[in-house]
Design a protein around this nucleic acid. Sequence first.
DNA 1: TCAGGATATAGATGGCTGTCAATATGTTGG
DNA 2: CCAACATATTGACAGCCATCTATATCCTGA
Lengths: 90, 90
Amino acid sequence: MHKALSDSTRFEIFRLVAAQSAPICACDIVDRFQVSQPTISHHMKVLRDAGLITVSRRGVWAYYAVDPRGLEVLRDTINALMPVQLAATR
Amino acid sequence: MHKALSDSTRFEIFRLVAAQSAPICACDIVDRFQVSQPTISHHMKVLRDAGLITVSRRGVWAYYAVDPRGLEVLRDTINALMPVQLAATR
DNA sequence: TCAGGATATAGATGGCTGTCAATATGTTGG
DNA sequence: CCAACATATTGACAGCCATCTATATCCTGA
């Protein structure tokens, strides 16, 4: 999961997806980055395999959204590493 | 920061350090992993450069501890990615 | 059914990095 | 001051991976 977020391009893609209030079209992601469409597709697969995003198809288009369960796992992992009194901090 | 935790050996080292109630000696870390001493030293440097751990010297020995500020940054980064109602979940 | 477009897959490649052996650096006890 | 030890640094190398081009797959409108 950390590995999925360790590449800067992929992290930025994830941030973009996470910033949306609705699923975002893959084509819109391709438009916003300098890398090629296959590279974006590859990154989406990595993020998907990590459980961080979900994909839904509408016709030809692919719509990506954050998988809340993945984020929860990530947060819980971090919290488990924190000393208790620090974990209580908000 | 995610990159620092993306390697499995390094993540396990960090988990070991985080699990201690007092700083842990580098020699004890070397003892618990299969990799060589220089490799451990390299990983400690990566974790240190990422702001995740701190080191203090006592004589010949190096003692490592989690840097709470790094963990806070990490947690805040994750929280910033979460939808508000999910971030409120405990 | 076909053309065109959106996305995914395959294969190749260059750069990054985790690892090791060898060595350097720094510290302490005698 | 020296020997022994703990840790860090260096240099080399193999495997991984982000990226590209080319191509395949899938869907839709006409």
